[in-house]
Amino acid sequence: MGSISAEAVKQLREKTGAGIMDCKEALSVCEGDLDKAIDQLRKKGLATAAKRAGRAMTEGTVQSYIHMGGKLGVLVEINCETDFVSKNDNFKDFTKNIAMHIAAANPVSIRREEVPQELIEREMAIYRAQAEDLGKPEKMIDKIAEGKLEKFFKDNCLMNQPYVRDPGITISDLLSELIAKTGENIIIKRFIRFQIGE
């Protein structure tokens, strides 16, 4: 593989926000394939994020987003480790985008572990009843219901949702990219979404 073009590095930087040397290395490893290089950088971001998970987060921000002429509003708390990162433009953009995403995608919880048990049981009862109505054999009903529950988690848990501005990545991927960029542990701590008439 010859030298990596500056244009390819620039494109990869724009798409991922990763550093120049990381972009060059990923393109070199992936023989200039942009899509593969993006995946490579994402994996690296995920590994970095996992390493930082134990560190304390005492800084951050509460971001608001108001939509539809005041008919829909979101407050989200996002924490980081230092005041320096909380004032960083990448962090600020991320918090705005997450608040906007929550307004649009209406998640039930941040993570699947936080979905209330009674909601899971109610969904499972509905999925089982649907499978029974279709005349599915008894031994397949639970499997079908579990498959539909997985889809429910994907659609309704913030971290699993496809990002509204780029459905090719999840909110979890977006967060990992920010962690890789800032070098700090960052967490979406809590949110509340208000909609008139709900």
Rank of each mutant, 00 (worst) to 15 (best):
R122C: 00
R122T: 13
R122A: 12
R122M: 07
E123N: 09
E123C: 03
E123L: 03
M124N: 11
M124S: 05
M124A: 06
M124Q: 10
I126V: 15
I126H: 12
Y127S: 08
R128L: 07
A129G: 03
Q130D: 15
A131M: 04
E132N: 08
E132H: 06
D133Q: 15
L134F: 06
G135L: 03
G135N: 01
G135S: 01
G135R: 00
G135Y: 04
K136H: 03
K136V: 02
P137E: 09
E138V: 10
E138G: 04
E138C: 04
K139Q: 15
K139H: 14
M140I: 13
I141V: 14
D142K: 04
K143V: 06
K143D: 10
A145Y: 01
A145L: 00
E146G: 03
G147C: 07
K148I: 03
L149D: 14
K151G: 04
K151D: 14
F153W: 11
D155N: 13
D155E: 15
D155H: 06
N156L: 11
C157S: 03
L158K: 08
M159G: 00
N160W: 11
Q161V: 06
P162Y: 04
P162T: 14
Y163F: 15
Y163Q: 02
V164F: 14
R165K: 14
R165L: 09
D166N: 15
P167V: 11
G168E: 14
G168T: 11
I169N: 04
I169P: 11
I169Q: 14
I171H: 08
I171V: 15
I171T: 02
I171F: 01
I171D: 06
S172A: 12
S172D: 15
S172V: 01
D173F: 00
L174D: 12
L174S: 10
L174P: 05
L175G: 07
L175S: 00
L175M: 05
L175H: 06
S176L: 00
E177S: 03
E177Y: 04
